[in-house]
Computed example of a mutant assay.
Amino acid sequence: MRIVFMGTPSFAVPLLRKLAREHDVALVCTRPDAVRSRGKKLEPSPVKTAALELGLPVLEANRMTPEVQDRLRAVEADVFCVAAYGCILPDPVLTMAPLGCVNVHASLLPRWRGAAPIQRSILEGDAETGVSIMRIGHGVDTGAYCAQASCAVAGKTADELTSELAELGGDLLVETLPALADGTAVWTEQDEALVTHAAKISKAELRLDPAASATDNVRRVLASSDAAPARCEIAGRPARVTAAACGAGCPDVAPGELVVQAGRVFMGCADGSLELLSVKPDGKREMDAKSWAAGQRGERGAWGRLE
């Protein structure tokens, strides 16, 4: 099958690689080089890097201009496959290929339409999430879907879950394309009564808070990223918490209290305690809790929400 692939972040890379093994990926469309890390240098998207490694032609575009559409049309693809491209596709593009445009969305639609389905599934404590192969329409993730696959959420970080869903989505897309080609794919319209929306995560949402439950604070740590890290003030200094767990077998710790016991660090929450496993104080390297505790004076202190 002749395919145009559209994607930008690391989530889309396993999908591209799996498609390239099974089909003729005639063109890869991705967003242009941009400042993607803390440095000031322009960097290619993960999809562009992977496409060049695979020897595939790349088209960089952040808008579907007439010139871009002419390039897409000239490919004469059977289908357009999209995964987190980050660009609105106009009607001429949606109908350009005989089999249309299909999108790999990282949720079990209609749950978690929108920009941050993976983080939202973690924050809400969903038991499972997954991927959906869906038609692209005019609304945000509103199209019918023809295939879904699921996986467990509990205990996984956003990065771990993203990687797992990317592999799952790539396998599902490859399995689904033959049904698209022969017309046997069965499309299911989304039940609007079950829709939830996955708005972009704000930094404020992931600030740890002694007034929240230990479980909610752990979920914030799991859902955090470089763009929106889980942060708080610990022993008078701002820091990013990079790993934590609900405190099992810990002493009684009041909300906002910090207790160091035998190299373990417990932070009091509304309903118990959070055990700090690793932390990155501002201006310092990331370290495990035992190393951090070794630099503290006394066994009790305080922690709080950053404003």
Rank of each mutant, 00 (worst) to 15 (best):
A228E: 08
A230Q: 07
R231N: 06
R231I: 13
R231F: 03
C232D: 08
E233Q: 14
I234L: 15
R237I: 10
R237C: 12
P238F: 03
A239P: 06
A239N: 10
R240Q: 13
R240N: 03
V241P: 04
T242W: 05
T242F: 02
A244M: 03
A244I: 11
A245F: 04
A245Q: 09
A245G: 06
C246N: 09
G247H: 11
A248F: 04
A248N: 06
G249C: 14
G249M: 15
G249V: 15
G249W: 12
C250W: 14
P251Q: 06
P251S: 11
P251N: 14
V253S: 02
V253T: 08
G256A: 14
G256D: 09
L258T: 07
L258H: 06
V260I: 10
V260R: 02
V260M: 02
V260L: 03
V260F: 00
V260K: 00
Q261W: 02
Q261K: 03
A262S: 13
A262Y: 13
G263T: 03
R264C: 07
V265L: 01
V265G: 01
F266G: 08
F266E: 10
M267L: 13
M267P: 02
G268C: 06
G268D: 08
G268Y: 09
C269R: 12
A270T: 07
A270I: 13
A270P: 02
G272C: 15
G272V: 14
L274G: 02
E275A: 08
L276I: 12
L277W: 06
S278C: 15
P281W: 11
P281Q: 07
K284S: 00
K284H: 02
R285G: 07
M287R: 12
D288F: 00
A289Y: 06
A289D: 02
A289W: 10
A289P: 08
K290G: 04
K290L: 10
K290M: 12
S291R: 05
S291L: 11
S291T: 04
W292D: 03
W292F: 10
W292G: 03
W292R: 03
A293K: 13
A294G: 11
G295H: 07
G295T: 07
G295A: 04
G295C: 03
Q296T: 12
Q296S: 12
R297L: 14
R297K: 09
G298M: 12
G298A: 10
G298N: 07
R300F: 07
G301T: 10
A302Q: 13
A302C: 15
A302R: 15
W303V: 12
W303P: 01
